[in-house]
Design a protein around this nucleic acid. Structure first.
Length: 421
RNA sequence: GGAGGGAUCGCAUAGUGGUUUAGUGCGGCCGCCUGCUAAGCGGUUAGGGGGGGAAACCUCCCUCAUGGGUUCGAAUCCCAUUCCCUCCGCCA
């Protein structure tokens, strides 16, 4: 979230940033509540100071004066009722603050929606086929490596089963990507829980605003993670990192769970948009001054997966209107899928500046003896699996119906070719 | 799931109703001393928020796991919750 002090001092800047996103938020309400809150706070604090003073005097007296005791009893009741009012205001204020999106970085192009995103570079050439390339929803069942019907039977629509070399290919991709980021890009692997407490969801920015997209366990009040970003953000919640600790690079594999109640159609066909999917996530905790450089490096780390797999892709910078709630600046990576003939979003890399850090109270000490400051957090898929799986199947399909395994994956699959039935 | 025990300023501890603005030791930091190191000596040692100020800074309030309660006054008494430890039950 944004700091109330910042909003108090720069209301117009915040308003401008909101309009770039095409969002409205209860800014005026926030400012009004803040003013009331501070007024009440001053009132209760002076009462407290008085009580403290009187309490010391009473302590030193042999005879307790009844008049003073009665007066202090009254002061105590006033404090109590003011406290209640203050915490109501705080709650109200906080709830509004938690729903205000991050500021838009000045370097972000302005635009309404995804059609205004800007392509910053592309890599590789779309493969030429002497035949009509199939979409993965045809390739999968034909090779008996993706089973849609049984997925639906077990768990409902938008669930599927990977089988045989399909499952192995996915496992190979996970291991390959983890190893790459660990060995060549300096990330530390973490394996976090897949269910988290509500605080974590608030810290990462998924709650309170996006509860609709999340699976929730009512019994124990736990939430299924929609991305590893959630638990990894909270690794250092309520911590003050010592000087010299930053930057921290983490890479985490998790399953991801998203409810996303959308109608069936082109966008949900195949395995592109299931309720459960696997992802290898890159995450950084950085000093504020270097977070944008770290973002560029993170995008490059994610891109290197595409390159090693030999799959054509493009990098887009998101415009202000398409930016995520917590992000101040983002890039998407899209792989070309020749079968379904579309660009698949396989990664979204974001600099969340101090937005999540403030929510999750993650700070660092720049130098020994200095005041703690909020860190910057960055996240990016490195990469999202079912879509990479789609891209592999569709880009590497052969005229005879087989699929060649990309060289980089062969140590993990143990085979060079997935044969048709 | 059941029964007990515990949670204090980085760590270890003192503190069972009123100068506690939470003491002491260790560690850390800054000096001094020392040929260097160690030892010794002196000082310092958290986080958040409000008000004032251009700023340096001044001032007030909160925080002894968390939330309530009792009281003129709570680290201290009472209740609930969370987490940790020990034992029992269950279980990959």
């Amino acid at each position: 979230m944004l700091s109330i002090q910042f909003i108090r001092q720069n209301p117009e800047l915040v308003r401008e940033s909101l309009s770039k996103r095409g969002e409205t938020a209860a800014l005026d309400e926030v400012l009004r509540l803040d003013e009331e809150w501070r007024r009440l706070l001053q009132e209760v604090e002076s009462l407290r100071a008085r009580r403290k003073q009187a309490s010391k005097e009473i302590a030193g007296m042999k005879e307790k004066p009844a008049g003073l005791l009665a007066e202090m009893k009254d002061v105590g009741e006033q404090i109590k009722s003011l406290d209640e009012e203050i915490s109501r205001k705080e709650e109200e204020l906080n709830d509004l603050l938690l729903r205000i999106p991050n500021l838009v970085h000045p370097s972000v192009p302005e635009g309404r929606d995804e059609s205004d995103n800007v392509e910053v570079r592309s890599w590789g050439k779309a493969p030429k086929f002497a035949f009509k390339p199939l979409a993965h929803w045809d390739i999968g069942p034909r090779m008996d490596i993706i089973d849609f019907e049984r997925g639906v039977k077990i768990s409902g629509s938008r669930f599927y089963v990977l089988k045989g070399l399909g499952a192995k290919l996915q496992r190979a991709l996970i291991a390959f990507m983890l190893d790459l980021h660990i060995q060549e890009h300096g990330y530390t692997e973490v394996y976090p829980p897949f269910v988290v407490k509500e605080d974590c969801m608030v810290g990462s920015g998924n709650l309170p605003k996006f509860a609709d997209n999340l699976y929730h366990d009512a019994e124990d009040d736990l939430w299924l993670v929609p991305t590893a970003e959630v638990p990894v953000t909270n690794l250092h919640r309520d911590e003050i990192l010592e000087p010299g600790t930053l930057p921290l690079y983490y890479v985490a594999y998790t399953a991801c769970f998203r409810r996303e109640k959308m109608s069936a159609g082109k966008d949900t066909r195949g395995i592109k948009r299931g309720h459960q999917f696997d992802k290898v996530e890159l995450y950084k905790f950085s000093e504020p001054g270097s977070s944008n450089d770290e973002l560029e490096r993170m995008v490059a780390d994610a891109e290197s997966v595409c390159q090693k797999l030999g799959i054509p892709y493009r990098v887009l910078q998101l415009c202000s209107g398409d930016l995520g709630f917590a992000s101040t600046k983002s890039y998407d990576i899209e792989m070309w899928a020749p079968g379904c003939e579309e660009w698949l979003e396989v990664s979204s890399c974001s600099n969340c500046s101090d937005f999540q850090a403030r929510r999750a109270n993650i700070r660092y000490r720049p130098q020994v003896g200095e005041k703690p400051q909020f860190v910057h957090t960055l996240n990016g898929s490195g990469l999202a699996l079912p879509r990479v799986l789609i891209a592999v199947l569709e880009n590497y399909q052969q005229p005879d119906g087989s699929v060649v395994v990309p060289k980089a994956l062969r140590p993990y699959t143990g085979v060079e070719l997935i044969e048709p039935l």
